[in-house]
């Protein structure tokens, strides 16, 4: 066991963890933050995507020990985030989710696209989404939702 201290959704957390414990299992099983889902455990599907130090990362292939000192933000930590509020509204309006299993990871990636690439066109959006697999929606609503949030942010001058 190794002692680690990190911030999770803004709160300081200190725990002993087995070095082999991956971040997503640590969050789910030890911190009871079950919003982040697991779909493959080899970095491909994107279901486990969350933010480490402000940037999207795969929590299935990150080890909790290696996140000592880091700041981790899971889907539960985005409740009041303004961009996420817009994205949630758009995902709902465009039917961008069905079973919802990919959705937390999808939203974290979508938020990254909206904030990092405010001028992305649809082709670029699709490319940036290619690391998040959804088996239900065919991505139609997801792409539309992201396009609509980006357009709304642009027209309101909110798109930085």
């Amino acid at each position: 066991m190794t002692r680690i201290a990190l911030k999770v959704n803004g709160q300081a957390v200190e725990r002993d963890v087995a070095p082999r414990r991956n971040l997503v299992d640590f969050l789910r099983d030890e911190l009871n933050l079950t919003g982040t889902n697991v779909g493959c455990e080899h970095g491909v599907c994107g279901a486990c995507t969350l933010e480490i130090d402000g940037a999207p990362a795969r929590s299935c292939i990150a080890f909790a020990v290696a996140c000592d000192g880091a700041s981790v933000r899971t889907i539960e930590g985005f409740d009041d985030d303004p961009v996420m509020i817009e994205l949630r509204a758009a995902f709902n309006a465009e039917h961008a989710l069905q079973c919802g299993y990919c959705t937390p990871g999808m939203l974290v990636t979508a938020r990254d696209i909206v904030t990092r690439l405010p001028d992305a066109d649809e082709a670029r959006i699709r490319e940036e989404l290619s690391g998040n697999l959804c088996r239900c929606t065919g991505y139609v609503g997801i792409v539309r939702a992201i396009v609509s949030v980006m357009a709304a942010r642009k027209s309101s001058g909110g798109g930085r």
Binding site: A55, P56, A57, A62, T109, E128, G131
Partner: peptide
């Protein structure tokens, strides 16, 4: 290379 979430690490 890969996807952004992978490229970040």
């Amino acid at each position: 290379i890969a996807y952004r979430a992978v490229r970040n690490r």
